[in-house]
Amino acid sequence: MRAQPGSGGMQRARALLLESLAATIAAPDMNAWPQVLRAAADGHGLVMNWRGLLADAPDTAAVRVAHALEMGPVGMQAWYAAWPTEGAQPPLEFAAAAAGLVAGREPLLVLAAPVDPSGGDSGALIDGESCARMTVAGFDPETELRLGNCEELLASAGDLVNLAGHGASGAVTPQFLIIGLKWHAPAGD
């Protein structure tokens, strides 16, 4: 096989975020999340900064997260959110918006997912190439985002994370985990 330049690194970065999510879901309670995430980041020689609650709506939260990643050091940053879910899929709205914000920024990845079933069974893991993949897959990201077609849009880029059957329900308010990763310093730094 002819390996694609950088594809191995991106695979590892994606695997790290998915492993971190799995570890968080398995954690006994929310208080353990920072510790679990630090251990996951540490395993890859990365620092993890726990940022606490994201109180904004998903599209605004996406701006906050993308900015924090852009300005922050190499490593992981994590937040949690408690978005309402009636008739909406907030982590997907968040991820679709974030995809547009980190477009072209190769070292940045963002994962947003529910940690218990009350938040739905879909999350998303986007990166700097997500928008390009959506375009190649025949979707216009801005239009689809405006139409609220986030699930199909993220699926077209291969960025949807299926969490069917994950975790134990019981939370009064659905909890969402958001992890940002700056995988390495951008070229030229």
């Binding site: 694609q4 594809s7 695997a15 190439e129 993949r133 190649v136 880029a157 291969g158």
Partner: peptide
């Protein structure tokens, strides 16, 4: 770009 898209999709299910 389509080759890369196929590779990305496939790696989601088969790393």
């Amino acid at each position: 770009r389509v080759q890369a898209l196929i590779r990305h999709h496939a790696s989601c299910r088969w790393p």
